[in-house]
Design a protein around this nucleic acid. Structure first.
Length: 435
RNA sequence: GGAGAGGUGGCCGAGUGGUCGAAGGCGCAGCACUGGAAAUGCUGUAUAGGGGCAACUCUAUCGAGGGUUCGAAUCCCUCCCUCUCCGCCA
């Protein structure tokens, strides 16, 4: 959510920031609402002060022997009633304006960071770095895509999964199931060694949690909702992790708080009919290991680099070539101020595909979720500020498996895995008789 | 699902209509004492929004919303949540 004070005092600045994102909005009407709301609040609280004064005086008179039917006391009571009615009137309009204002503000995306490069689409994203040597087919070699490898090894059920659920669900079998599990454990351990606290959160989340991280109200059609409860299947662990500290004031000296969570993620993928219909790339249900930081507002730039490095570390440990892209203003996600996408090389597909998205949200989610931190100075509070939140995949597990399979495929149909996985998977090669 | 109890500050816990933002304790911070520490003593310790250079001051907040009243943490109604016991269950 964007700052109401900025809206009141500097709507042009806010408009300009949103314009960088490709959003053309006239904020004058909204500003008028915000100013009117503030004005009502001032008048209302002055009236309430008057009412409190009257109440105190009645109390004083009665306690010092005044009689309840004393004409002066009766007059004061009448005056108190009058004030009460006025307050109620102002309050009604004030609340209505407040509600409308919040409703509108929740619809606005975050504004881009000053560092985010300008652009209108994916095409304007910037390659920041390249790592590793992408595998290309040698002469006469045809590299398979991961789904082909899995099918040839009989490690995936595609049609039968439609029977169980519907399309865009898969069932992994045998060594593929084992590899998925190995990857999750590997990633959690790796991040744990780098100081992340492991979390196993609820994966059904309520509406307030989805609103706090930015999925609601705008993207309701992207998530699965339980019919009889105010609960949704989480589309990313970012949602429960944000709400882990919703409505809290964190001790600034304890920051940053760094969490890593593995969860299944559920997405309806509305509007992506026909895209990535085979394999593990785009599913309604997938596993993801998520990194999440709550950090001091001054520390978030450095934190963003650190978090992105932590995600890259997984790719490097798995010897998977990748590139780091910096998203342009037009390609940013709703809650992000600045984002690095990590794209892994898929040797069979012959393309880089997104495998991690590392974003800093500034105070956007913190404002929605009411998460602040308090700086102390010799035991005295120096006031609270909204924290900054950051998140990044570390990594999307299914896509990681796809990349590994395509990168390590061998002429005999088996797959050589990176040595880092051996302790987790139990073998160097996938596709041979059971490890 | 059935029965009961309860939601007060960072935590514990008192308060049952009138300066109550809320006693007391714990915790935390500062100061004093100490060679240093412990113990002890004193002091200070919520958040949000307004006004003021500031000291300070006004308003709101005792789970949420509504009601009674000049005045509500306190009385009434509705809702939410938590806990205990029973049943069911991985």
């Amino acid at each position: 959510m964007l700052d109401q004070r900025l809206l009141r005092e500097n709507p042009e600045v806010m408009s300009e920031q949103l314009r960088r994102r490709g959003l053309e909005v006239d904020l004058r009407y909204l500003q008028a609402i915000a100013l009117r709301e503030r004005e009502l609040e001032e008048r209302r609280s002055a009236l309430q002060a008057e009412g409190n004064r009257i109440g105190r005086e009645v109390g004083q008179r009665l306690r010092s022997g005044g009689r309840p039917d004393d004409p002066e006391v009766l007059a004061l009571k009448e005056e108190g009633n009058r004030v009460k009615r006025s307050v109620a009137e102002l309050e009604e309009e004030e609340k209505e304006l407040e509600r409308r204002l919040r409703e509108r503000l929740l619809e606005f995306p975050n504004v881009p960071s000053a560092q985010t490069p300008a652009g209108t689409s994916e095409a304007d994203n910037v390659v920041v770095k390249l790592w590793g040597e992408p595998r290309r087919p040698s002469a006469g070699e045809a590299l398979k895509e991961h789904w082909q490898i899995l099918e040839d090894l009989k490690l995936i059920e595609t049609e039968r999964s439609v029977r169980i659920a519907q399309s865009r669900f898969v069932t992994l079998l045998g060594q593929a199931a084992r590899l998925e599990r190995a990857l999750i454990a590997f990633m959690l351990d790796l991040h744990g060694q780098r100081g992340y606290r492991e979390v196993l959160p609820p994966i059904l989340v309520n509406s307030a949690s989805l609103t706090g991280s930015g999925q609601l109200p705008k993207f309701a059609e992207e998530s699965f909702k339980c019919a009889d409860d105010d609960l949704w299947l989480t589309p990313t662990a970012e949602v429960p992790l944000t709400s882990l500290h919703r409505d809290e004031v964190l001790d600034a000296s304890q920051l940053p708080l760094r969490y890593v969570a593995h969860t299944p993620c559920f997405r309806r993928e509305a509007g992506s009919y026909g895209r990535d219909t085979r394999g593990l790339i785009r599913l309604h249900q997938f596993n993801k290991v998520e990194l999440y930081w709550f950090c001091h507002p001054e520390a978030s730039d450095a934190a963003h680099e650190r978090l992105t490095r932590d995600a890259e570390n997984v790719l490097e440990s798995l010897e998977l070539p990748y590139r780091r892209m910096e998203l342009c203003t037009g390609d940013l996600g709703f809650s992000a101020a600045r984002t690095y996408d990590l794209e892994v090389w898929l040797a069979g597909a012959g393309a880089y595909r997104e495998i991690s998205s590392c974003s800093t949200c500034g105070d956007f989610q913190a404002r929605r979720s009411n998460i602040r931190c308090k700086d102390m100075d010799k035991g005295k509070s120096k006031g609270t500020r909204l924290v900054h939140t950051l998140n990044g995949s570390g990594l999307a597990v299914g896509r990681t498996m796809a990349a590994l399979l395509e990168a390590g495929q061998q002429a005999d149909g088996t797959v050589r895995l990176p040595s880092a996985l051996v302790p987790y998977f139990g073998a160097e090669v996938l596709g041979r008789p059971s490890p």
